[in-house]
Design a binder for these strands. Structure first.
Length: 86
DNA sequence: GTTGAGCGTT
């Protein structure tokens, strides 16, 4: 079983990591959910990341990418930065 | 008490 990181963008600024966790838990076990906060202000940057099994991640991406959430159309995709720890 | 493309601090 391989865990992959999912990039989630265009989130409402009120979205929290637990919100992300709930959203993606619908399609599988969420290993980690994280909203990226501005390091200077600690406020949401409007995007985040979720780690889960790649099969579940694929379903969650298909389910949420381009779908509206809280009035915003989400951008959901496989993460690019932060290489996996070896 | 604000903003709106983009890939995170461990």
């Amino acid at each position: 079983m391989a865990v992959v990181s999912i990039f989630v963008g265009n989130l409402p600024w009120a979205t929290t990591d637990e919100d992300l966790h709930e959203l993606f838990s619908q399609f599988g076990e969420v290993k980690r959910s994280k909203i990226v906060l501005d390091r200077e202000t600690n406020r949401s940057r409007g995007f985040g990341f979720v780690d889960m099994e790649e099969a579940d991640a694929a379903r969650a991406i298909e389910a949420w990418n381009g779908q509206p959430y809280n009035g915003r159309v989400l951008t959901v995709n496989l993460a690019q930065s932060r290489p996996a720890r070896a």
